[in-house]
Computed example of a mutant assay.
Amino acid sequence: MDDAEVAIDGRRARGDASRRMVLERAADLASVEGLDGLSIGRLATAAEVSKSGIATLFGSKQQLQLATIAAATERFTATVIVPARVHPRGLRRLTALLDSVVAYSQNRVFPGGCFFSAAAADFHAKSGPVRDALADQLEDWMDYLAISARFAAERGELPGLDDADQFAFEAQGIFEWMNLMAVIREHRSEPIYGRARTAYHARLLALGADPAIAALVLEPGAALRPVMA
């Protein structure tokens, strides 16, 4: 590799690092102030980067918003979905997902609570690519929850489950109310997270889950622990 190629690779690496840093700040900012209010100028101030630098990276407000959704999706996946994969598909993984998604809000992975709940409130009635991207991500998550529940049912671990999509719908409904009330009642949020865990536990028991496994969702982090041989 000659000196010119080294220089190009170095600039590319710095550009990628700068883009990641800006998008991290953008996702945090949007979770608090709203994705609709995320502009090149506002982000430049918050990230202490020039407007021209942000414009060079993203081109337009819409492209910035779409890139922020993609970055937020990566953070959500790394925080909620990947840790649950310590278990094979089935009830243990499903329980771990429910555990993780409560912790995702409780631990403020995004400072404003759930990035996607906040962004959906901004764009639910506005047509266009940004709303479509948000809808796609939310539907992907619901599908993943439903598929996870379906695997558990197929393994005989949720004998009462006859509609995995309905389960995912109800589970997400619990999450949305939990996240909303916990963000609003920031200094009194602990009981709210406990109620969400209790609701998930009751739903799993109603579907015939092993009580010992279902109970793991009641203790933060318990469902994520590897199964001892």
Rank of each mutant, 00 (worst) to 15 (best):
A196Q: 01
C114G: 02
V227E: 11
C114I: 05
E176S: 14
A46T: 07
A214Y: 07
L57K: 07
A206Q: 12
Y104P: 01
A17Y: 04
G59I: 09
D99P: 09
A152H: 10
G15E: 12
L161M: 11
A72E: 02
A133Q: 03
D136Y: 08
P220L: 08
F169I: 14
D162E: 12
L35N: 00
R85Q: 15
A4I: 14
D136I: 08
L35G: 04
S52Q: 15
G173E: 09
L216M: 15
Q137P: 00
I213R: 10
A182H: 03
L134K: 03
L35F: 00
N179V: 02
L138Q: 14
D165R: 12
G15W: 08
A206I: 05
L138V: 11
D162G: 11
S148N: 04
G15N: 12
V82Y: 07
P211A: 09
L66K: 06
A7C: 10
S18Q: 15
L207C: 12
L98K: 06
S39T: 15
S31I: 01
S50F: 05
H87V: 08
E219H: 11
A17W: 05
L57C: 02
V22A: 12
I184L: 15
R150M: 13
Y104K: 06
F175Y: 15
S50Q: 11
A202P: 05
D3E: 15
D165N: 10
A214C: 06
L23A: 01
I69N: 00
V217F: 10
L98Q: 06
W141A: 09
L23Q: 03
V183P: 01
A121R: 08
R155Q: 14
M181V: 14
G10I: 00
S189V: 01
E5W: 11
A209M: 07
I147R: 09
L98S: 06
A84C: 05
E74M: 05
R225G: 05
V217K: 01
A71Y: 06
R89M: 13
R14P: 00
D28A: 03
Q62E: 15
D122V: 01
A96I: 01
T56M: 13
I8V: 15
R42K: 07
S18F: 09
V6G: 06
E24A: 13
R188Y: 12
A119N: 04
A47N: 09
F169C: 13
T95M: 10
L205I: 14
G59M: 08
R25K: 14
E219M: 12
I54R: 01
G10T: 13
P220E: 11
R19Y: 07
R20D: 10
R14D: 01
A229L: 15
L38R: 02
A71Q: 07
A209E: 02
A119F: 06
R12W: 10
R11G: 04
E48W: 10
F169W: 14
A30L: 02
S50E: 13
V227S: 12
M181G: 01
S148R: 01
R93L: 14
A214K: 05
V109L: 02
A121N: 08
S148I: 09
Q62P: 00
A119T: 09
